[in-house]
Simulated scan of single mutants.
Amino acid sequence: MNFPKRQNYQATAKPLIIVGSKNPVKIACTETAFSEAFSQGFTVDGVNAASQVSDQPMGDDETYLGARNRVMNAKNIFPEADYWVGIEGGVGEDIRGMYAFAWIYIEHKSGLNGKSKTATFYLPEAIAELIHSGMELGAADDQFFAQENSKQSGGSVGILTQGTLTRQTYYNQAIILALIPFLNKELF
């Protein structure tokens, strides 16, 4: 397992957030969203926390569970944090085709939690076929669009919007929405 350096986080005045992933996009969007929502700085680090779901989660339930499991496993790995964040991308299908989305799950050391789901967007049929063959969305994007490790940069949303929306900006809004209970503690 990869652990963040257990430097003396208490020596800083900034609250510590642990993201249940080492993906730099997930870490960066978490830092941006928290800073925007609370108008203050945070120390943000990531750990390799298992989602305990399929490599390519299918549907809301499995994807949500993956985000929540990342938080629970990150808490076990790094219990000293103030917040833990799980971000899990998934795909679903309906009569219109296959679509992509992500669930965000956040927990505070007090036990208060927040959750949100990103917007959805439909995938090209060629990508859906690759996913049906057993590929994960990031690998399907890399193969079809001749990319390398796209999920650690703009992701599928970045490729399909031609960079207008990146994976980081896509997750950013959903993280802020998952912070609603923390911004309105008296209501939750």
Results as ranks from 00 to 15, higher is better:
residue 1 M to Q: 11
residue 1 M to Y: 14
residue 1 M to C: 11
residue 3 F to Y: 15
residue 4 P to F: 02
residue 5 K to G: 09
residue 5 K to W: 12
residue 6 R to W: 15
residue 6 R to D: 09
residue 6 R to I: 09
residue 6 R to P: 14
residue 7 Q to T: 05
residue 8 N to E: 13
residue 8 N to W: 09
residue 9 Y to G: 11
residue 10 Q to G: 11
residue 11 A to N: 15
residue 12 T to I: 09
residue 13 A to C: 12
residue 13 A to Y: 12
residue 18 I to D: 01
residue 18 I to T: 00
residue 19 V to F: 08
residue 19 V to H: 04
residue 19 V to T: 03
residue 20 G to S: 04
residue 21 S to F: 04
residue 25 V to A: 05
residue 27 I to R: 04
residue 27 I to Q: 03
residue 28 A to D: 13
residue 29 C to R: 13
residue 31 E to F: 10
residue 32 T to E: 10
residue 35 S to A: 07
residue 37 A to F: 12
residue 38 F to Q: 06
residue 39 S to E: 07
residue 41 G to F: 09
residue 43 T to Q: 15
residue 45 D to N: 10
residue 46 G to Q: 01
residue 47 V to L: 08
residue 47 V to D: 10
residue 47 V to S: 11
residue 47 V to I: 10
residue 48 N to T: 14
residue 48 N to V: 06
residue 51 S to G: 07
residue 51 S to A: 05
residue 53 V to E: 13
residue 54 S to T: 02
residue 56 Q to W: 09
residue 59 G to F: 04
residue 61 D to W: 01
residue 62 E to T: 05
residue 64 Y to E: 13
residue 65 L to Q: 11
residue 66 G to M: 08
residue 66 G to W: 09
residue 69 N to F: 05
residue 70 R to V: 03
residue 72 M to W: 04
residue 74 A to C: 07
residue 78 F to V: 11
residue 81 A to T: 00
residue 83 Y to S: 00
residue 83 Y to R: 00
residue 83 Y to E: 00
residue 84 W to N: 00
residue 85 V to S: 07
residue 85 V to A: 08
residue 86 G to K: 08
residue 86 G to R: 05
residue 86 G to N: 13
residue 88 E to M: 01
residue 89 G to P: 10
residue 93 E to D: 03
residue 94 D to M: 07
residue 97 G to M: 03
residue 97 G to D: 01
residue 97 G to E: 04
residue 98 M to Q: 06
residue 99 Y to Q: 04
residue 100 A to N: 06
residue 101 F to V: 00
residue 104 I to V: 14
residue 104 I to D: 04
residue 108 H to V: 00
residue 109 K to V: 14
residue 112 L to A: 14
residue 113 N to W: 13
residue 114 G to S: 03
residue 115 K to S: 08
residue 116 S to M: 04
residue 118 T to I: 07
residue 120 T to L: 06
residue 122 Y to M: 06
residue 122 Y to T: 11
residue 123 L to D: 04
residue 124 P to K: 03
residue 126 A to H: 08
residue 128 A to E: 04
residue 132 H to P: 07
residue 132 H to N: 15
residue 133 S to M: 15
residue 134 G to P: 01
residue 135 M to L: 10
residue 136 E to Y: 03
residue 137 L to D: 06
residue 137 L to G: 02
residue 139 A to V: 13
residue 140 A to E: 10
residue 140 A to H: 14
residue 141 D to H: 12
residue 141 D to K: 12
residue 142 D to R: 01
residue 146 A to T: 09
residue 150 S to T: 13
residue 152 Q to A: 12
residue 152 Q to E: 10
residue 153 S to A: 12
residue 155 G to Q: 14
residue 155 G to Y: 03
residue 157 V to T: 10
residue 158 G to E: 02
residue 158 G to N: 00
residue 159 I to P: 01
residue 159 I to R: 08
residue 159 I to D: 13
residue 160 L to Y: 11
residue 162 Q to H: 09
residue 163 G to Q: 00
residue 165 L to C: 10
residue 166 T to N: 01
residue 168 Q to R: 12
residue 170 Y to P: 13
residue 170 Y to W: 10
residue 171 Y to F: 08
residue 172 N to H: 08
residue 173 Q to G: 05
residue 175 I to A: 06
residue 175 I to R: 03
residue 177 L to S: 14
residue 180 I to V: 10
residue 181 P to L: 02
residue 183 L to P: 12
residue 183 L to R: 13
residue 186 E to C: 09
residue 188 F to A: 08
